[in-house]
Design a protein around this nucleic acid. Sequence first.
DNA 1: AGTGCAGTTGACTTT
DNA 2: TAAAGTCAACTGCAC
Length: 515
Amino acid sequence: MLQVVWFKRDLRVEDHAPLTRAASCGPVLPLYVVEPELWRQPDMSARHWSFIVDCLRSLDHALQQRGQGLVVHRGDIVSVLGDLHRAWGRFALWSHQETGNGWTFARDRAVAAWCRDHAVPWTECPLHGVQRGLTQRTGWSRAWEAQMAQTISTPPAQLPVVVATPAEHTLDAACAQMPPVAPNREQRGGRAQAEACLHSFLETRGRDYHSSMSSPISAETSCSRLSPHLAWGALSMREVVQATRAARSALDPAQCGGHRRALQSFLGRLHWHCHFIQKLESEPRLEFDNLHSAYDDLRPEGHNPALLEAWQTGRTGLPFVDACMRYLHNTGWLNFRMRAMLVAVSSYHLWLHWRAPALFLARQFTDYEPGIHYSQMQMQSGTTGINTPRIYNPVKQGRDHDPDGQFIRQWVPELAGIPGEAVHEPWTLSAALRRRHGAAEYPDPVVDHLTAARRARQQIWQVRKQAGYREEADAIQERHGSRRSGMRQCGGPSPRKRASEAPATQQAFDWGLES
DNA sequence: AGTGCAGTTGACTTT
DNA sequence: TAAAGTCAACTGCAC
C-alpha cells in the first residue's frame, strides 16, 4: 500500500519518524500541500513562505537523492487527499502532530474525519517534546526528557520511485503561484543553513550567550538563531538537544567553564520552548481568549487604531521601541527581551488588547511558532493570571542595552544626528535643537511613558484584587504552571534566600519566570 | 579621631 | 530577563 508522508512544519528527512516508519511499510509518496486558505489567515505572511521555500528546496533535494522527490499540491488538503485516493486507491497517511493555530487545528480534524470515512490510517508522531492528550502537568519534564533521549531516527537511504513528479506538482510550479518574496536581511532556510547555524552556535557564537542575549546588538550573533529552523522543522528539537549536550560535555570544565554554563543555559531554553507550546496544545483557546477571564473587559479589542499604527510602524516617539520595531521589520527576528519590551509597550503603555499586536508580530517573525507566540503574548500582557506583570521602562531598557545609542541611531535614522544621552529621550530637547540635529521628522512620544506605566500598573493590580481572582489563578497554575514553580507557591512562604543560595543557572531562573 | 551627614548600594517589598 | 519604593548598612567627606 502507498505510504503518503505529509510534510507540514517538519521540513527535513533527518530524525523524521513518520518518513522513516512509512518507508519501512511500503513505497513513499512525500507530499507538501500549499493551502491557499492557510495563507489567507491573518497570522501568516510572505516572510514565512520565503523561509519555507528554502526549506522545501532543500527537502526536495534530499528526497530526490533518495529516489523519490517531493510532490507539491495546491489546494484544500481534504480535496488533495481525495485526488490521491482516486489516483492510488487506499493509502496510509503519515505526519507529525502539529500544535498550530486554530485554522490548522480545525483542518486537522477535517483530515481525521476524512481518513475515518475512507478507512485511511493516519499516524501522527509526536513533535518536539510536546505531549498530546495530556491530562496533568506532573511528570511533564520526565516525559520531555524521555523524548529527547530517544535515538535519532535515520532517514531511509533509498526511496523506491513512486511517481515521476508531474510538472504541475513541482515546487517551482507552487512558487509561481505564490506572491513573490522581496529579498531582505532575513535568515535563509534549509538544512545546510540550519546545520551551519547549530554548529557555529555550539562551537563559537554561544560562548557568551548568557551575558550577550539581552542587548539587541550582541544578541544578533550570540543568540542561537535556531528558532526559524526549529519552527519550520529543518532541525528536530531532539537533534538540537543531543548536539548541545554532546558539545557541552566535550568542553573541559577547567578551561571552558563559562562556555559550558552558556550551553547549559541554552538547554534550559530548549526545554522551555516545548513547555510553552504545550500550553497551546493543552488549551487552544489561548490563541483567542485571555487565559484569566478577569482581564476580559480591561482592554477592548479594536480600540485606538492610531496607537496600534504608531507601534506597528515604529513611530511611537520612544526611540528604543521604534528602533526595535524597525529592526524587526528588516530582519524578521528580535531577541527575546526586546520582544517582551515591544509587547509590554503595546499592552501597558498603549493599553492595546494583545490580539491585533499578536497577529502583526506573527507575520513579522520568521520563526512564528503559535504555541510560543500566544503563550508569550498573554504572559507579556499580564493576562495569564499566573505571572507577575512585567512593565518594562522603554527608556531604561535603551540605556541598559544600548548605552551609546548606536542601535537607535542605526535603526531610527531621524535620530542619527542627536548627540549623547538625549538620543534616549529626544523630547527633552527643545524643538529648535531637535530641528538643528535633523530630527524634525521624528514624532513626539504618543504617550508619556512614565504616566502610562503608572496608570497601567494601577489598573492591573486593581483587577488582581477582585473577589475570586485568586481562585481562577490557582486553577490556571494547576493546568499550566511548571511543577517546579507550582511547588514553591503551594509550600507557603519560602525561607529567605541569600544571594549565594540563589539558583545558580539561567535554567533555574527561567523556570522561576513561569510561576 | 570621632561625629554628622549626604549620597550610594543592596536586599527586600510592593505594585 | 520589571520597576519603583523602602530601609538599613555602608562610604566618603567635612569639621
